[in-house]
Amino acid sequence: MKECHEISNDPAEGRGQPFAELFRLQTEFQSRLADETLRYLRRLQGAAAPASPGTVMIPDGLTELKGAGVAGSPAELKLEVENLQRVHSTATPMLSPLVSASGITWFPESESTPVSLLLAPGATAELRLRVAIPLQLPAGAYRGCLMLHGFRDGALPVVIEVRGPQGEEKKQPVGGARPKPAAAGKTRKKA
């Protein structure tokens, strides 16, 4: 005698049916297969996308860009940029958050002059970056990097040495700052 199974359209009712789990797995497999196929086709499509020539930044024999200032006054960083490419290049500087050895993360407010450089082929120009040091920022050496926004490679390491206001100066050597237990792990807001 032939055995007959009924399959319900109602998911709640079909839960106990012997084929329900099989159908659920089958549906999931089909859905996943469709997703993965689409993803693979899109990746293939990506390989055929037209290339856009870019730019890389090469630091010129420099290890670190150094700046220093007293809390409450600005520090200044200067960067000379030379365009070795055969067409005009644009350079827009941006500073990363700076971190001290004692664990303080500083989101510096910086102003670049000019805001971005448009360099003709073979031209060299100077960027000045004025970094405002908050009055309440603890003294120390703050490290981060200067990025020329949008370039494929390269960032310039930056260290800004912050000295306390006159009379209460607690100078920490660059790279040798000792952790302060009270300030460790905290992010201070600027004054």
Partner: peptide
């Protein structure tokens, strides 16, 4: 305030077509 200065060069990535009027 004290000055910190550096120098960088902008170049074509290695292995690519490079930026020229023709390639752009």
């Amino acid at each position: 305030m004290s000055d910190g200065s550096g120098r960088v060069r902008l170049a074509d990535p290695a292995g690519g077509p490079g930026r020229s009027t023709a390639t752009l």
